[in-house]
Computed example of a mutant assay.
Amino acid sequence: MLRLAGFGLFALFLALFGIHAAPPPPQQASFDCAKASHPLEKTICVSPKLRALDGEVAALYKEKLALLFDKQGFKGQQRDWQQVLRTRCAKKCDPAAVEQDYTVQRNSLRGFNAELWEASYKTADVEQLAITHIDARQFDFTLNRDLDGETLCKLPASDGEAGAIARFTTPDKASWSAGTCRIDFALERDKTGHVTEIGAVASAGCKRYCKANHVLSDNFTPANNWVASNQ
C-alpha cells in the first residue's frame, strides 16, 4: 500500500487541483512608483528588472553607508551618480542604458569596503591610514609614512606580516596591539554624527615600525577620491 507523508499528500493535492504556491512578491523600487514623475523614475517603474536593481542598489548603499567613516564623501559619490543618470534621462530614457548604469553601480557598491585617510601636514612627510571595513565591530588597516618616496614608517612592516585589525571598544574608540605596540584610534564627529577626523596614538613599543625618530601617531582627515561609476 502506497503511503505518503503529510507534506507529500498535501503537495499531490495541490498538483491534482492545479493549485500552486503563490510566488514571492517582486522586489520593489526604493521609491513610490505611484508618485513617479521623472522620466527615469517612470522607466524604472515599468520594468520589474529595473525596479529590482533600484531596490538592490539602494539596499547596498544603505549597508555601506553604515560601515564607512567618510560618509560625506560616500554620499557625494552616490549623489553624483544619481545626478548623471537623471540628466541623461531628462527627456527620454533608454531602459538598456539605465540597466547598464545600475549594474555597474551595484557592482561598484559591492566592493565599497575601503577608504583612505591622510595625516594633516605638520611636516614635509605624509602619512596615510588605509582602512578596510570587516564589519561594524572591526576594521583592517595599514599605516604608511613617506617622504619623497622614502618609507619612514610602515605597519604592517611587510606584506608577509599578519594584518592589523582594530576592534571597537566604544562607538568612537578602537584599538589594536601586537606585543609591546598598541595603537588607539579615536573618531571625531561633527554635529550631524559624521566622522571628520581619526586620531591615532601609538605606544612607544611601535617604534620598531619606524625609522629614526619618526612616529605612527597622527591625526587623519578624509582623502578619498570617489568618483561616480557613470562619469
Rank of each mutant, 00 (worst) to 15 (best):
W226C: 00
G111N: 11
S158A: 10
A204K: 14
F17Q: 13
W81Q: 04
T151V: 15
Q100K: 07
Q82T: 15
Q100S: 10
Q77G: 01
T180I: 15
C153Y: 07
R189F: 09
L187V: 13
A52E: 10
D146Q: 09
L4W: 04
A22K: 01
C45F: 09
V57H: 02
P24D: 03
V215L: 09
N219A: 04
G193H: 02
R208W: 15
N113P: 07
F185L: 01
A162T: 14
Q105E: 10
S37H: 14
I165D: 07
N224D: 11
G193K: 00
I165W: 11
V195S: 01
L155F: 03
K154E: 13
H194E: 13
Q72Y: 01
L9I: 08
S37M: 12
K191W: 07
T123H: 11
A130N: 12
I19R: 03
G6P: 03
G160A: 12
S30Y: 00
P39C: 10
F168E: 05
D148C: 00
A174L: 06
G149M: 07
L67A: 02
C210Q: 08
L143R: 09
T221K: 10
L4F: 06
C33A: 08
G55F: 14
T180R: 11
Q72I: 09
K71D: 13
